[in-house]
């Protein structure tokens, strides 16, 4: 346990020095501000409180931004140490490979938690400042917060797996961008096209729910939009959210981080320094 914290402390310090913390926090804060401003217009006519509308926009944002930040923080974790030659050294110290990865995970997830908290906090303050009944949206915002961390944790694990698999930081960087594009952008577009073409047929009712659960980003999107009742404010695959029970989406969302981390450890075990 003390080894995990030692690694986490060093990794957090490195992220702070590399300005990763500042970049992540600034990025989340900026996007939250923009969305709060954009969401302030039509809220009165829709009947939703201002914050609930912002949460719907934040969900669409987080599904892109949180995995991206997680992957950018994690791609160097193993490949960078291989390149610097410090991995061979680290592995001659007492302690398991899993604990080394766990230390990095704790630090990176902490940074993600801070950045997302700042961003969502700004959105909440902006909404509450204009409208007292926005308090009604706080539950949805809190739900968005911890599911964002689950999503981030999943992509951190995926990033470590890619990093261990690629062995070189350059290759790992390219591969995480590819992973991000495929998992967050293309997968969703493909599903949307299939659902539209199917028009509520067998595919939508039986295959689609499994395909949604097969991707943590979609599970995250569906759970938050379905649970907040703001589905009507969102477009895309979320329109078909009625076919997937929110609890099932949540179960998968909880499962994914463990699966991703297990994958990362399996990939890391194969690395010979």
């Amino acid at each position: 346990m003390s080894r995990i914290f030692a690694t986490a402390a060093s990794e957090a310090r490195i992220a702070l020095r590399n300005r990763w913390v500042a970049i992540a926090v600034a990025m989340m804060a900026l996007f939250a501000l923009v969305l709060s401003a954009a969401g302030s217009g039509p809220s009165g006519t829709l009947g939703f409180d201002r914050l609930s509308v912002t949460v719907a926009s934040l969900t669409s944002l987080a599904v892109y931004l949180v995995p991206l930040m997680a992957l950018l923080m994690s791609f160097d974790a193993v490949a960078g140490e291989v390149e610097r030659g410090t991995l061979a050294l680290a592995l001659t110290y007492p302690g398991s490979r899993a604990s080394l990865l766990a230390g990095k995970f704790v630090a990176h997830l902490g940074i993600l938690a801070l950045a997302v908290a700042v961003g969502y906090g700004i959105a909440a303050l902006a909404a509450l400042a204009f409208e007292a009944r926005a308090v009604a949206g706080l539950a949805a915002l809190w739900r968005l917060y911890w599911t964002s961390l689950l999503l981030g944790a999943t992509f951190l694990g995926a990033g470590y797996a890619v990093s261990a698999w690629a062995r070189r930081p350059g290759a790992a960087a390219g591969m995480v961008i590819g992973l991000w594009l495929a998992a967050v952008v293309l997968y969703d577009l493909g599903l949307l096209a299939a659902v539209v073409a199917d028009g509520g047929g067998t595919f939508t009712r039986h295959v689609f729910p499994w395909l949604v659960m097969g991707n943590p980003a979609d599970a995250f999107r569906l759970f938050n939009l379905a649970a907040s009742g703001a589905t009507s404010a969102a477009a895309g695959v979320a329109g078909a959210a009625g076919f997937v029970p929110p609890l099932q989406a949540l179960a998968w969302l909880l499962l994914w981080p463990f699966a991703a981390f297990a994958l990362a450890i399996a990939a890391f075990r194969k690395v010979t320094p």
Binding site: S10, R84, G85, T86, L89, P94
Partner: peptide
Amino acid sequence: RSATAYLPENVAFHPAL
């Protein structure tokens, strides 16, 4: 591992620390 020390060839520690 507890009682062995290693100095790798051309080791480059993290420049930020």
